[in-house]
Amino acid sequence: MTDAVSMNIQTIPLDWYLLVAAVLFTIGVVGVVTRRNAIIIFMAIEMMLNAVNLVLISFAQFLGDITGQIFVLFVMAIAAGEAAIGLAIVLALFRNKRTVYVDEVNVLKW
């Protein structure tokens, strides 16, 4: 039963996954460049990380190599750490400047 299902699923070509991942990454780039809210910029970064994860899993499954999936596991751990640190920075920023809009933060722009 599982064999029939997996034979079917296997017939979607690699290019389709790569193009979906490319579009998702680009949407993430647009989010980072155009938004002002630090939290939404942060969510767009997560989206870019996920697009890369999709590419890694695709190649792992198409080449039959486990390494890509292990990489995804590490990327997830980094993303979790990044989430904790990034949101802590946003909190500290809000406490000091009363804003989360990145264009209103210019203490380092002299």
Partner: peptide, 8 residues
């Protein structure tokens, strides 16, 4: 890579 499909 159109001819490349998921490995068995």
């Amino acid at each position: 890579t159109g001819a490349l499909y998921q490995s068995p």
